[in-house]
Design a protein around this nucleic acid. Sequence first.
DNA 1: TGTCAACATCGATTCCTGTCGATATCGATG
DNA 2: CATCGATATCGACAGGAATCGATGTTGACA
Lengths: 115, 115
Amino acid sequence: MEELNLLECCSQLAREPLGEEEAAGLARAFKALGDPVRLRILSIVAGHESGEACVCDLNASFDLGQPTISHHLKVLKDAGLLTSQRRASWVYYRLVPDRLAQLSALLSLPAEMTP
Amino acid sequence: MEELNLLECCSQLAREPLGEEEAAGLARAFKALGDPVRLRILSIVAGHESGEACVCDLNASFDLGQPTISHHLKVLKDAGLLTSQRRASWVYYRLVPDRLAQLSALLSLPAEMTP
DNA sequence: TGTCAACATCGATTCCTGTCGATATCGATG
DNA sequence: CATCGATATCGACAGGAATCGATGTTGACA
């Protein structure tokens, strides 16, 4: 995994001014997180014992149409936050831990900045 | 600070299904992070030795109009990510560490989920 | 008090996004 | 091969957001 260098320590934000293209990639992920339905989808996937949830579970968890849920799943997948796998008739989604860790690390500030 | 319970451990996502109103509050913050300009603004503020940056610094760092930067600062402030303080003729912005820590903790998964 | 510089707000425009219904795809199963 | 259920894609619509120029506000200073 070539993203380890992004995780080596905390304080990504303060390290140096974010470049434009780097900021664009990160912004895509945060934009995907910037919707209540998508946050709840991630939460449901994360909460499953097996580490994955099928679309049918998700559809049942929201008062939204099936195409809408499918759209949100696509946004999360395109942002690198979820992967999908088809098994039999169902499609299962699971988190991408590295991506989440990357974002988490970006937001963790050094101790000297949290007085 | 009454937000400490939100920080006690990792794996906020997996703890239990995010409620609608809780997800809405978090989504507002992530939506604010979901723009390259705003991420770079945060990065610039975080990178300052003093922990704060004045609007004049920020205006000079972008090829955007002054009202646009002001708009982005307002979004970040409304999302609870920045605070502002006026001193003399200048307005200084600084990070809200607790808010960043809350978001960072939400995205950090338990070790058993990162194989 | 009048003026200037720094910053915020307003109104308008253009583009993006969430949602839906309808339809297509794809596997399983008969 | 025909059908059915699960999921994805498409087209459309309404509301939101990023940007800009113009204008308002506020504090410093002469």
